[in-house]
């Protein structure tokens, strides 16, 4: 992938910006992809970095609640599939950070900003996965919601992001099927299993309804993002696609949406109606005030810090840098520890 090269005159007051912008927007409107070496408005680049970074962050943070359940997965088949799924999420983060890097921001910096709480991650991973059924609901419904979003984004204007998303969508299809399979097993299982699943759905319904972001009435970024084909559908449109496809499947499994949502189908328009989520709460959660926001970031920080010696050592080994000789110090250090 070609690396980012700084492009001149990419800010609105720069000479020649307007003409370049017109040509750029015409290309995007034609459905042409933008590639790393191209001229692009600084704001386009910034918005994309922000978006891809949040997406990548969400993948590595999403690996935490599910990863914590790997030890307890209740059959060998579930265990294998869950490890593979969490592994895919780490793999997706790898692909996405790489796509963001082509816009000129190194991975180290992107990850550091997450750890420092300066970059966001998806609202859903600010909540704890309390039981095995939570893992099933995350794998089915949250991955379903994510696929709605990612399938759309894969048609977006930025080449490297779009390429990464095509592969991600392909892999998410396995996550979704596996998630559905796990939910069917619980929904057709014993009373304890059915209750466990319903509890998880009830607990997760709020974060799920918030997943696609604030309602169109409140979302500030949408208009420009859509003109630049960074985004192709509004938050509410995505939410409707998700509800249309998955609520009937949930009902079919005998699952209920908590009554306070007053979720109902408008037969005339085919739209699902519901009580609007509290978007102030959503904003607060993604800003780091969710039930387990702090633990998630703390965990990421610890993993990153604990891995530092490995990254440094392999770098040193590759660089052929002089290696300090083994000395009596070794014992001293060992004692201190």
């Amino acid at each position: 992938m070609v690396q980012f090269t700084p492009q001149p005159h990419d800010k609105p007051d720069d000479p020649g910006y307007e003409e370049r912008l017109v040509a750029f927007e015409a290309r995007v409107a034609r459905g042409d992809k933008v590639e790393p070496g191209d001229w692009m408005p600084l704001d386009y680049r910034k918005q994309l970095i922000r978006l891809i970074q949040v997406h990548a962050n969400s993948e590595i943070c999403g690996a935490l609640p599910e990863g914590a359940w790997i030890p307890h997965a209740p059959s060998l088949q579930r265990k294998l599939a869950l490890v593979a799924k969490v592994q895919d999420e780490v793999g997706h983060a790898q692909l996405l950070y790489r796509a963001a890097e082509t816009l000129g921001k190194p991975r180290e910096e992107l990850i550091q900003e997450l750890i420092d709480g300066k970059a966001k991650f998806s609202n859903v991973f600010h909540y704890p996965a309390e039981t095995w059924a939570d893992v099933c609901v995350i794998a089915w419904l949250i991955d379903a919601a994510a696929i709605v979003n990612q399938t759309m984004m894969a048609e977006g204007s930025y080449g490297p992001y779009s390429r990464a998303l095509k592969r991600i969508c392909y892999e998410e299809a396995f996550h979704l099927t596996h998630g559905y399979d796990m939910c069917i097993t619980l929904a057709t299982g014993t009373k304890m299993q059915r209750d466990m699943l319903q509890d998880a759905v009830s607990r997760w319904w709020k974060p799920i309804m918030m997943f696609h972001g604030p309602s169109d009435k409140e979302s500030k970024h949408t208009v420009q993002l859509m003109r630049w084909r960074i985004k192709l559908k509004t938050n509410d449109e995505q939410r409707q696609i998700f509800l249309k496809k998955y609520v009937p499947k949930m009902f079919n499994l005998g699952l209920k949406v908590p009554e306070e949502w007053d979720l109902r189908l408008d037969e005339e328009t085919g739209k699902w109606l519901y009580n609007e989520p509290d978007w102030a709460e959503f904003i607060s959660v993604v800003r780091g005030n969710g039930p387990v926001s702090e633990q998630r970031l703390r965990t990421r920080r610890l993993a990153h810090e604990h891995g530092l010696w490995v990254r440094e050592a392999l770098e040193a080994a590759a660089g052929g840098r002089p290696v300090p000789m083994p000395t009596a110090q070794r014992n001293r250090v060992a004692v201190e520890n």
Binding site: A63, E66, G67, V90, G91, G307
Partner: peptide, 11 residues
């Protein structure tokens, strides 16, 4: 899984 020292090694 999810806690490795670097993404590639984690995978």
């Amino acid at each position: 899984t999810g806690l490795g020292p670097i993404l590639e090694e984690d995978i």
